[in-house]
Amino acid sequence: MVPAEETILTNLRRGALEFCVLAMLTDEELYGLDIARRLTVDGLLMSSEGTLYPLLTRLRTAGLVTTTWQQSVEGPPRRYYALTPDGRDSLAAFTRTWPAFRDAVDHALDRRDLP
């Protein structure tokens, strides 16, 4: 990928990625590695797994997620992330705002393509 595209993606992710994480936690609690693996599947939402952890720290500091230690079968206990009520509200607000924003960007880009 050319550097310009990677820079654009980095900037785009900054506003949207934390809500993708919140959305993943809507129905289930997940641990860090699991979230990282799901987000890096296509390399679009996240290209380096490590950048997830500052983001999760941020969500936790903001009170949008909580963590609990849970025993795992294979190894040491894992920290599972869960949505807080604030996190749920925040996700709902983003979900309401996003389609209009996305359409506006699409619209602006389409107009540029017109002769």
Binding site: G32, L33, A36, Y53, P54, L56, T61, G75, R78
Partner: peptide
């Protein structure tokens, strides 16, 4: 505190990824 939290997350990630 945030620094420790990030470090804990990354350490845990590696523990999980590399197994016992």
């Amino acid at each position: 505190r945030e620094r420790a939290d990030v470090m804990l997350g990354v350490r845990e990630h590696l523990d999980g990824a590399l197994g016992a």
